[in-house]
Amino acid sequence: MLVFSWSLVTLLLVSSSWAEADVATLEDFSKELPVGQLLERANRDRTPDFDEPTLIGGDIAVKPGADRNADPCTSTGCLWLKNADGNVYIPYYIANHYSSREVAIITRGLESFSSVSCIRFRPYQNGDHEWLSIESKNGCYSFVGRQGGAQTVSLAQRGCLYHSTVQHELLHALGFNHEQTRSDRDSYIKVYWENIQDGMSYNFNIINTLNQGTPYDYNSVMQYEKYAFSKNNRPTMMPIPDPNVSFGQATQMSKNDIDRLNRLYKC
């Protein structure tokens, strides 16, 4: 009986170790998923609270009455203000419901901009009139560009805390839209409208974007992958003229993402 008990304990310990290993493997794999897949998965079946904004494009927050086909950076202006020293200091506040590990992921994403641009995210201070309020709301989302006051960037604890998703939402907050909605999209991407989920076709509408003289970037962290919002497991997007070009696989900002950020803010 004693031998059986020890065997049972051993079996349980081994099974537990396998389960933990499986979870670790899943987490490691998730970190390597393209950003579009992470965002779509996190926002799937999203049920917003009454005070949360409408989302378009999968993760772009819009205010009531906003023109969904307009780029706020070209229609009203959206840049954060530049300091006399040439840097752009953007205050942020991280809600206290995140764990220390989650805060570290968010902070790493914030700090990744300072080494490649003049963007400097700094903690909120008394007297700041506008700032990013980073919170775990329902899903991953951000407004496009500077809105004034407390500006929500939602990074839900369940599904949004990856380096790529943090960078993606911060680029929205800095003024950038998705790559597949660029004004010149149709020269580089063919959209298969018949494969898009019902009610999701507006996610692919072209808008009058500021492209900063940079080429279309299949490797942008703002580019979704070819099955985005598919209703039948068939592609919703394919690159043209070469359908074999890899795209939508980014796990961090590309060189073009960085170049256009520096051009927009004249870094």
Rank of each mutant, 00 (worst) to 15 (best):
108 R>D: 13
39 L>D: 05
164 S>E: 07
258 I>D: 06
206 I>V: 14
220 S>E: 10
144 V>G: 03
181 T>C: 07
51 D>E: 11
104 A>S: 15
77 G>Q: 05
149 G>L: 10
207 I>P: 00
125 Q>P: 03
132 L>Q: 12
191 V>A: 02
147 Q>V: 12
168 H>I: 03
9 V>E: 08
117 S>F: 01
225 E>G: 12
265 Y>P: 12
3 V>N: 05
28 D>S: 14
21 A>S: 12
267 C>D: 12
260 R>E: 09
86 G>V: 10
196 I>W: 05
206 I>R: 13
20 E>R: 15
35 V>F: 05
193 W>G: 06
14 V>H: 10
30 S>P: 00
132 L>K: 07
192 Y>L: 09
222 M>N: 06
148 G>D: 09
96 N>F: 02
123 P>I: 05
91 P>V: 05
242 D>N: 15
44 R>Y: 11
10 T>F: 13
139 G>M: 01
15 S>K: 13
218 Y>D: 02
50 F>K: 14
1 M>Y: 08
116 V>M: 07
195 N>Y: 09
232 N>P: 08
154 S>I: 01
117 S>G: 03
61 A>G: 07
107 T>R: 13
60 I>S: 11
252 Q>N: 12
31 K>D: 13
49 D>A: 13
265 Y>G: 09
194 E>Y: 01
169 E>R: 11
37 Q>F: 05
140 C>E: 02
167 Q>F: 02
263 R>F: 01
156 A>F: 00
238 M>K: 09
102 E>A: 09
152 T>V: 14
208 N>W: 08
165 T>C: 05
78 C>W: 03
46 R>E: 06
18 W>E: 12
133 S>E: 13
154 S>R: 08
267 C>L: 05
264 L>I: 04
55 L>F: 02
201 S>K: 15
66 A>Q: 13
214 T>V: 10
197 Q>E: 15
229 F>H: 12
3 V>Q: 06
99 S>M: 03
99 S>I: 10
87 N>V: 03
183 S>G: 00
28 D>M: 14
186 D>P: 00
62 V>A: 01
224 Y>V: 10
149 G>E: 11
54 T>L: 14
92 Y>Q: 06
182 R>F: 01
111 E>S: 14
198 D>C: 06
202 Y>R: 15
21 A>M: 14
1 M>E: 12
115 S>H: 03
246 S>T: 14
159 G>V: 01
266 K>H: 13
37 Q>E: 10
103 V>H: 12
264 L>E: 10
219 N>C: 04
110 L>W: 03
141 Y>Q: 07
190 K>F: 00
134 I>R: 13
90 I>L: 04
139 G>W: 09
86 G>D: 06
240 I>E: 04
211 N>L: 12
57 G>D: 00
242 D>I: 01
14 V>K: 12
35 V>L: 08
105 I>Q: 06
